[in-house]
Nucleic acid binder design. Structure first.
Lengths: 123, 123
DNA sequence: TCCATATTTCCAATATGATGGAAATATGAA
DNA sequence: TTCATATTTCCATCATATTGGAAATATGGA
């Protein structure tokens, strides 16, 4: 993940409504939730909801599929994991020699993937 | 970490200049950097730098200490780790029964602390 | 005390983001 | 085709964040 993408994700998550939406989708898992359901649960007017979903889409934090008349949104776990990895990778950068490998905590609703990251442990 | 604090941290990191500052401080480690050094490296006018440092302070993402005429800023590793843990803790919430414990990747410049978190692995 | 350095605070201008009503689009059912 | 549902797009308004020059504050040295 590049800085540009990490920044986009952080900007998107740095808004209460979008953090609420994203967490709701995280909780919902891969099945996702229809836009209408999200709006109902968070009491958001359609236009406002659509605006924020659009922001999350642009940041690649959510995906969606059509199911009949509904658009079903779900959290993009891989991007979330990439963001976590990015933030971790870049902490203590420049002290690579004194870093130890560490297992990142990731969110994998379907199956475990290997997404290595490094955590800096200087002594 | 509460939602309020996580949101504050995400808002703070969701700005290019502040992400730059924060990563610079992460790289600098616990020794930190004087405000002037940060401004010099990132080519920021004093007032602009001060504004962003203030935002990062309010989000508890940086700490500072005075050393003679300089104010030395450093990254608040524990808060960064708490943010990582928070984002991970809350993914797949509601499916706790099918979650497995996982080691979070953390950034610990001084010594290793135990900061347990959970990653959801549904099967 | 006086001056230089380091940084912050004040403030006004500017830019950007968010809101939500209303209209437009897409889908499926009768 | 016609209608109802689901969601988006358009757009004007409003709110908030950002910027940086200038002045203020804090520190230490001569």
């Amino acid at each position: 993940m590049e800085k540009h993408d990490a920044l986009a994700a952080l900007v998107a998550l740095g808004h209460e409504t979008r953090l609420d939406i994203f967490r709701l989708l995280m909780q919902a898992g891969p099945k996702g939730l229809a836009a209408g359901q999200i709006g109902e649960r968070l009491a958001l007017p359609p236009a406002t909801l659509s605006f924020h979903l659009s922001q999350l889409k642009h940041a690649d934090l959510v995906t969606f599929r059509r199911e009949s008349r509904s658009l079903i949104y779900s959290a993009a776990y891989p991007v979330m994991n990439a963001l976590l990895a990015y933030m971790t990778e870049n902490c203590c950068q420049g002290a690579a020699a004194s870093c130890e490998a560490a297992t990142p905590s990731t969110c994998q609703p379907e199956e475990r993937h290997e997404t290595p990251a490094r955590a800096c442990v200087r002594r």
